[in-house]
Amino acid sequence: MKKIFSRPKSLKTTPFHYCPGCGHSIIHRLIGEVIDEMNLQEKIIGVPPAGCAVLAYNYFDIDMGEASHGRAAAVATGLKRAVPDRVVFTYQGDGDMAAIGTAESIHAAARGENITTIFVNNGVYGMTGGQMAPTTILGQNTTTSPRGRKEKVEGFPINLSEMLAIAPGSSYIERTAVNTPANILKTKKAIAKAFRLQIQGYGFTLVEVLSACPTNWKMDPLKASKWIDEVMASHFPLGVLKDTPGDKKDAH
């Protein structure tokens, strides 16, 4: 019998600890598939963040080095500059990337560091119990914006990917989601493209993935998936934000 579907070999056999309906497990799998398909297992180094994905090194069967909260882009810069022929990626959440690590993220993009960032945006601090994130949208309830985020009180959410797209050093930035089969396939293509552009030396690449956190959103997974399309994506529009190399065959 022919085997047509299996665990990517760049993922370990450890079961994921993620909640039902969480996007992390899908995104991990997509990265694993891309690593396998591009034959990168022996030349890729990952930098996991603080947050729910902090244990990513238990799941990926590749070299990984932990970063403290927000500093992944700086750690990845040091790694990539020391071993420039390897592929280096960071895996960061919205609090990590767009709040505490804003300076590191912006300057890695500005310098055109030849690294890839997988930016998982679920609009809350997941691991600490669902507090307000820099990407929490107006009106959204969290444990630290219990009356709903208001622009006069908590201020506006931040669209970091759009900001990074302005930087001349960034080459490719796309926002995708993992809430439908079609979006999952687009996400995989975007990750593959980002890694390929890094190998070709185009500079900073980023894939922002809108990802559900049903536990902290207090929704069932199905409703959470719909909420991404109906509410979240209107604040964080899906699509290519920047594509300097402009490789048409990858365009969605």
Binding site: G65, A74, G78, L79, A82, E104
Partner: peptide
């Protein structure tokens, strides 16, 4: 490699990255 980082915090974490890769930093 010489990088003037955006902050002291970033520079020490770049040190961590290069050290992870085995370099003297």
């Amino acid at each position: 490699v010489f990088i003037q980082a955006e902050s002291e915090i970033a520079s020490i974490h770049m040190v961590i990255g290069a050290s992870m890769a085995g370099g003297r930093v």
